[in-house]
Simulated assay, not measured.
Amino acid sequence: MSDPTEQEIRERAHRLWEQAGKPEGREEEFWNAAEQELRNEEKSNTLRTPDTL
């Protein structure tokens, strides 16, 4: 399991910021939310293992 890259976090944070209407002064909030979302997605993906027959 690897941590999300700075670029991945930046892109997700920007998308979240745009979806929220581009509020000023909340950069850290969006950065933290983006980082958490990416970590949760990765954790979820590693828990899913394909069934093997």
Rank of each mutant, 00 (worst) to 15 (best):
M1Y: 02
S2N: 07
D3M: 08
D3S: 14
P4K: 06
P4I: 10
P4W: 12
P4A: 08
P4M: 07
P4S: 02
T5Y: 02
T5D: 03
E6R: 04
E6C: 05
Q7M: 09
Q7K: 08
Q7W: 01
Q7V: 14
E8W: 00
I9V: 15
I9K: 11
I9D: 02
R10N: 04
R10L: 07
E11D: 14
E11R: 00
E11K: 00
E11H: 00
E11F: 00
E11M: 00
R12G: 03
R12E: 05
A13R: 11
R15A: 15
R15I: 10
L16D: 03
L16Y: 09
L16A: 13
L16C: 09
L16K: 14
W17Y: 12
W17V: 12
W17S: 11
E18R: 15
E18C: 15
Q19A: 14
Q19K: 10
Q19R: 07
Q19H: 03
Q19G: 01
A20V: 07
K22Y: 03
K22G: 00
P23K: 07
P23A: 13
P23G: 09
P23D: 02
P23R: 10
E24C: 02
E24S: 09
E27F: 10
E28C: 02
E29W: 04
E29F: 13
E29N: 02
E29T: 09
F30Q: 02
W31F: 14
W31Q: 14
N32M: 05
A33S: 07
A33E: 10
A33N: 10
A33Y: 03
A33F: 04
A34E: 01
A34D: 00
A34V: 03
E35F: 08
Q36V: 04
E37Y: 04
L38A: 11
L38M: 06
L38C: 08
L38H: 11
R39Q: 15
N40V: 07
N40W: 05
E41N: 10
E41Q: 14
E42K: 15
E42Q: 09
E42P: 00
E42H: 11
E42S: 13
E42I: 14
K43F: 12
K43A: 15
K43Q: 10
K43L: 07
N45W: 07
N45Y: 05
N45G: 01
N45A: 14
T46V: 08
T46A: 13
L47Q: 12
L47W: 06
R48W: 00
T49I: 13
T49D: 04
D51L: 09
D51Q: 06
D51R: 08
D51W: 04
T52Y: 09
T52R: 11
T52L: 12
L53Q: 06
L53F: 07
